[in-house]
Design a protein around this nucleic acid. Structure first.
Lengths: 216, 216
DNA sequence: GTCAATGCTCTTGCATACAAGATTTATCGT
DNA sequence: ACGATAAATCTTGTATGCAAGAGCATTGAC
């Protein structure tokens, strides 16, 4: 329970940003956060410095911290990179997966099927996350997995918006099927291509995102 | 000159780590750093929190901060991701480069030629960095460019070791030539493939890296 | 002589205090 | 009445102080 205070604050504030409790552009007042969490300003500042280093907030000298607002264009760029990393994870997974990896992937895929056919988009959201994390793990690249998890986390709110689009859940699940097939067949290039397409938000999916962002 | 103290400390310590002044595994004593830079412990701690968030150091509760030592395997993983990101940057650059981008890339390439044929591997190191940054910029993806620069920076010490290997500078420059050609020809897939190969450290280049690391 | 236990010291973690810049409000002048 | 300037207040940035835990040394026992 010692250093955990800063770590706890970091997670709490980060979650607050991701769950949109702290909206983009919002000011993060140090004393306010300190009293809210029942600590002094020091650990709050240390947590904010970490979020600043990650790129979630911006600290303007003498003017406080604000939640960064990545415009639609930058969000698109982030998905572009995410697609590339997922593609790499998929291709590595196809070459390196073990029996345990196969089991985990198939289990997550089965859960996705359940929540998808039940039409439960919230449940699908979590099962989808497990599915993708199973692929990261199967890539057997710790660094890649970390990068993917971090980016996935940052894109969480927008991913969530996307699933609200009509039929997106069903489409997503269908794509998962092909991805699983490619990976388990050991087809690295096919897995890479499919995952890249699955993750990237080209064409009308980008328009949908912009529209949903604007209406928020 | 206000918040810049923390930022300055962050950069100084980060540079110290990258230039191996603070070797992997070294303890970073707060008071020691504070007196060394003529400040109090508070900004030092805040800088350390940032480096911790980036993943350059590890802060063990009540036991201080140590420089992270990524073993050879993890370094390989980092190069693997770097290769993928550079490949993406190259493919985007091939599709999006402007006249100004072409000029910058060619200028950096010309500088590389100078330092390469002069056999000056230190100079080549810097020109090489400019060359790669020119490609990031030409990708016209701000987020991708940031990610590339950050990873490039973290891999700096190992990249530097690599250039010491016999003929690596000449080989590197030759690869640059083909990359420039592919990008300026607008051949996105070729640019991606060449850059990926250029950056990744497969086969004997990995052995060289491990050997050089061990002898350090 | 060696191992273990206890106490001391040193470092970290958090809080508070103080200083400096930014913002807001109030007052004065036109 | 509106705008500008100055003062007051609020917030951030840095230093210092205090408490608690981890490491180290010394001493005692077997």
């Amino acid at each position: 329970m010692s250093e955990n205070v800063v770590q706890r604050l970091r997670d709490e504030i980060e979650n607050g940003i991701i769950s949109n409790d702290f909206a983009p552009g919002a000011r993060l007042d140090e004393v306010q956060l300190a009293t809210r969490f029942g600590v002094s300003r020091t650990p709050v500042r240390e947590a904010l410095m970490q979020l600043n280093a990650i790129g979630l907030i911006e600290i303007r000298p003498r003017r406080g911290a604000v939640v960064i607002d990545p415009g639609p264009h930058r969000i698109f760029e982030m998905f572009e990179v995410m697609a590339e990393l997922e593609g790499l994870a998929g291709s590595l997974a196809a070459r390196r997966f073990t029996d345990a990896d196969r089991t985990t992937i198939l289990a997550a895929h089965a859960d996705c099927e359940r929540s998808s056919s039940a039409g439960n988009s919230d449940a699908y959201y979590y099962d989808n996350e497990r599915f993708h994390k199973a692929i990261y793990a199967a890539s057997h690249s710790g660094f890649l997995a970390e990068q993917c998890v971090a980016l996935h986390r940052r894109l969480q709110p927008y991913r969530r918006l996307q699933l609200r689009v009509r039929n997106r859940v069903a489409t997503s699940f269908a794509e998962h099927g092909a991805i699983v097939e490619a990976i388990l067949a050991g087809d690295a290039e096919q897995a890479r291509t499919l995952l890249r397409q699955h993750v990237s938000i080209q064409g009308e999916r980008f328009s949908d995102l912009v529209a949903t962002l604007a209406s928020r």
